[in-house]
Design a binder for these strands. Structure first.
Lengths: 121, 121, 121, 121
DNA sequence: GTGGTCTAGACCACC
DNA sequence: GTGGTCTAGACCACA
């Protein structure tokens, strides 16, 4: 798998996992792939995956069962949605709105771009 | 002045300058504050401001007159608008749209948030 | 049963057993629950319980009778008391005293906390 | 420097730092030694020190100024005292009291051991 | 100079 | 088998 270079890999992996949880592909209380498995399938060093897991564990999105593996926490789906939403609304949107004002992009144009995206992307 | 930690300070300063140019506050062919002045007022290392200037000069948004200072280039306003617009549409919007889908925020909700922002912020 | 994560599960189980012996609930020369029984009631892998038994056997606190099960050894009560006492005085107390100094908790406060504990806990 | 083997080195380093803050040796808003310096003086890998710093930063005990270094946070002294105190009272003391009951060590004996410690240790 | 990330490889305790 | 920690060494962006 290829990663962008403008963000740490371990965070990109965290995003991947969160998306899997959000989309319901990975159910709560389900075991995640092991550190080594993920490392191999993502073509990444195990340490990097370990870092992702530690990071997500701190956020209570996953938890560890010793000697067995990592599991999606109960309530993880809701939690990630809240966290992502907060981040989006508080950190992203203000900047987006500011840019829209500066660049004189109004809601109409935004809608067009959005429809354009949903068709092609 | 306080800076966010998810982006290099020198780029954040560049953004500040571009916004001043875009808003018309700093007219073309006008002299910018000196490196030292900016560094002091922004509470930043002069090297960092210097880096911003070099960066903007590379993009032809400002130019240097030896021994005198940096000036807003002719056509800078239009240029920054184009550059920012490209960046916004190609780099930002796709991620915004993706998040909207993931978080199930539709255009209606987006509009509400937008109006809310234009009133308060 | 839930276990703390800062100590191996098999040692926490060993502690449980020792407490039962110390308190007199499990008399000497009495048969312990089988590995399977304990594993089920503690919601733990049988291997883990097995490890606990091996560990306690090494310390002569329990002994094995082939095909029958594990038994509390003769003198186990006195033995565990001595072992625990050594451990407590040499390994625990120094750290406790150090913390008390660092956090400026004196003997008076310690007494209050102790009385508070004996009433509620 | 030598470390105990029953606890991760990076946590032992964190404890060292906290003690320096608690004792007032390292004042708030003061710069910590750099990662590399600490690594050398503690005879440890820089990554290990880095881990300690990340850990303490998550707890808001230290903060980072980019390109400059890590600093003791404002309010760090109070914060560490509160955190350590909570940990001590909620996680340590109950176990200590429990042990005292099991081993029949009363407050009198505890006092003797305490005085003995303050004299010799 | 500073921190931050990543890889590679090793060793350990635990289940 | 699992995770967790540590070392060594490299490279990069930033101030």
């Amino acid at each position: 798998m290829e990663f962008q270079k403008d963000q740490p890999i371990y965070l990109q992996i965290a995003d991947l996992i969160c998306e899997n949880i959000l989309s319901g592909e990975w159910q709560e209380e389900t075991r995640l792939p092991s550190v080594r498995e993920l490392a191999i399938s993502l073509e990444v060093n195990p340490n990097t995956v370990m870092r992702t897991f530690t990071y997500l564990q701190d956020q209570k999105i996953i938890y560890n069962q010793r000697g067995i593996g990592y599991f999606v926490a109960a309530g993880a789906r809701e939690l990630t949605r809240v966290l992502k939403r907060e981040d989006f609304i508080n950190a992203w949107l203000p900047q987006v709105f500011k840019m829209m004002n500066l660049l004189q992009i109004d809601l109409n144009e935004f809608q067009k771009l959005y429809h354009n995206y949903t068709k092609t992307g």
